[in-house]
């Protein structure tokens, strides 16, 4: 009984692995068509604004140069 169950398990496992091994993935597409990737870059506008603020403060004479480095 146990041997039969084991044989069945091995059989099913073999069938499954055989099925995986024989499966192929075919990519369909035109190899000459260029691939376009749209990358959207997120910039922290608030952070940029703080930097702009510091730099313009320094240029107008209100702050020391340390403020430009965010110190």
């Amino acid at each position: 009984m146990l041997i039969r169950r084991d044989c069945l398990s091995i059989l099913f496992l073999s069938l499954f692995l055989g099925g995986c091994a024989s499966a192929t993935v075919t990519a369909v597409g035109d190899p000459e068509r260029p691939i376009t990737i749209n990358a959207y870059i997120t910039i922290d506008i608030k952070g940029l604004k703080d930097t702009a603020d510091n730099i313009e403060d320094y240029v107008s004479g209100d702050e020391s140069i340390k403020s430009v480095k965010g110190e």
Binding site: K46, D50, T51, N54, Y58, V59, I65, V68, G70
Partner: peptide, 23 residues
């Protein structure tokens, strides 16, 4: 957040000081 000027290279410092002098 902040996109600071992390390194005050001579070129950057010259640009900042130039703007300050010309303000």
């Amino acid at each position: 957040g902040a996109y600071d000027i992390k390194e005050l290279t001579p070129v950057v410092k010259e640009a900042l000081d130039g703007r300050k002098a010309r303000n």
